[in-house]
Simulated assay, not measured.
Amino acid sequence: MNSSRLILLTGLVIVGICACTSNESKEGQHEGVIFGKIELSDGWVRPATKGGMSAAYLTISNGTVSRDTLMNISSSAAAKAELHESYKGENGIMAMRPVSQPVIPSGEKLHMSPGRFHIMLQDLNRNLSVGDSVDITLTYSRVDTQSIRLPVKSQP
């Protein structure tokens, strides 16, 4: 085999390997190009005392062409941050429960408001007073991570 054929064959093998591996989905990696963006709006946090709990509210708008999943929530103001939902339990008493990795369809919104979905901030590491702000980080399966600073308000 002459050297030009060997170079051509080697090049084709490399291109073939690259083409195959670029289309394979590997766990923890994002697939494809993301068109559009996820927007965060209308956010605020309830006042609370150090060591206690608070709730954060906002709207997540999925303006991408694909559904996305909220994988994790964190905040520097609390030891733990989780998405919770309020619901009417036994005897009509309101209760809360964690929500695991909600899917936000393309073109839709996840509204967080009192009495519905909210981010539960647990074991606060400082007092949250009206006028303060709280940083919250949201991690998604496709668009990666977003951070937002929310004002502390008694009620909007």
Score class of each variant (00 low, 15 high):
residue 65 V to C: 14
residue 20 C to Y: 04
residue 9 L to T: 11
residue 139 T to W: 15
residue 144 D to I: 00
residue 108 E to S: 14
residue 51 G to R: 12
residue 23 N to M: 05
residue 9 L to S: 08
residue 116 R to Q: 06
residue 22 S to R: 04
residue 130 V to E: 13
residue 104 I to D: 15
residue 32 G to L: 03
residue 74 S to K: 00
residue 82 E to K: 02
residue 6 L to Q: 11
residue 134 V to A: 00
residue 137 T to D: 13
residue 12 L to E: 14
residue 43 G to L: 02
residue 19 A to W: 09
residue 87 Y to D: 09
residue 57 Y to C: 05
residue 142 R to D: 13
residue 50 K to P: 15
residue 107 G to N: 07
residue 82 E to W: 02
residue 114 P to E: 12
residue 76 S to R: 05
residue 85 E to F: 03
residue 35 F to L: 08
residue 125 N to Y: 05
residue 69 T to E: 05
residue 62 N to W: 01
residue 17 I to S: 07
residue 88 K to S: 08
residue 117 F to K: 02
residue 94 M to W: 10
residue 59 T to Q: 14
residue 55 A to L: 03
residue 77 A to I: 01
residue 130 V to M: 12
residue 100 S to Q: 07
residue 44 W to T: 01
residue 78 A to Q: 15
residue 8 L to N: 15
residue 107 G to Y: 03
residue 26 K to G: 06
residue 50 K to C: 04
residue 130 V to T: 04
residue 95 A to V: 02
residue 142 R to I: 03
residue 36 G to P: 04
residue 111 H to C: 00
residue 113 S to W: 11
residue 144 D to P: 04
residue 17 I to H: 04
residue 50 K to I: 08
residue 66 S to R: 10
residue 77 A to Q: 04
residue 70 L to Q: 01
residue 135 D to G: 13
residue 6 L to Y: 09
residue 101 Q to T: 06
residue 98 P to D: 09
residue 62 N to T: 05
residue 119 I to K: 05
residue 112 M to V: 00
residue 139 T to N: 11
residue 142 R to A: 03
residue 25 S to E: 11
residue 50 K to G: 10
residue 27 E to K: 11
residue 98 P to I: 00
residue 45 V to D: 02
residue 119 I to F: 05
residue 122 Q to Y: 01
residue 42 D to C: 07
residue 47 P to S: 04
residue 85 E to C: 09
residue 76 S to D: 10
residue 76 S to Y: 04
residue 92 G to L: 13
residue 72 N to C: 14
residue 71 M to Y: 07
residue 112 M to H: 00
residue 143 V to C: 15
residue 8 L to V: 10
residue 59 T to V: 01
residue 19 A to K: 07
residue 58 L to K: 04
residue 2 N to W: 12
residue 139 T to Q: 07
residue 141 S to G: 09
residue 113 S to A: 13
residue 70 L to K: 00
residue 121 L to A: 01
residue 99 V to Y: 12
residue 107 G to D: 15
residue 95 A to C: 12
residue 80 K to T: 10
residue 12 L to D: 12
residue 119 I to P: 00
residue 28 G to L: 02
residue 3 S to D: 09
residue 18 C to M: 13
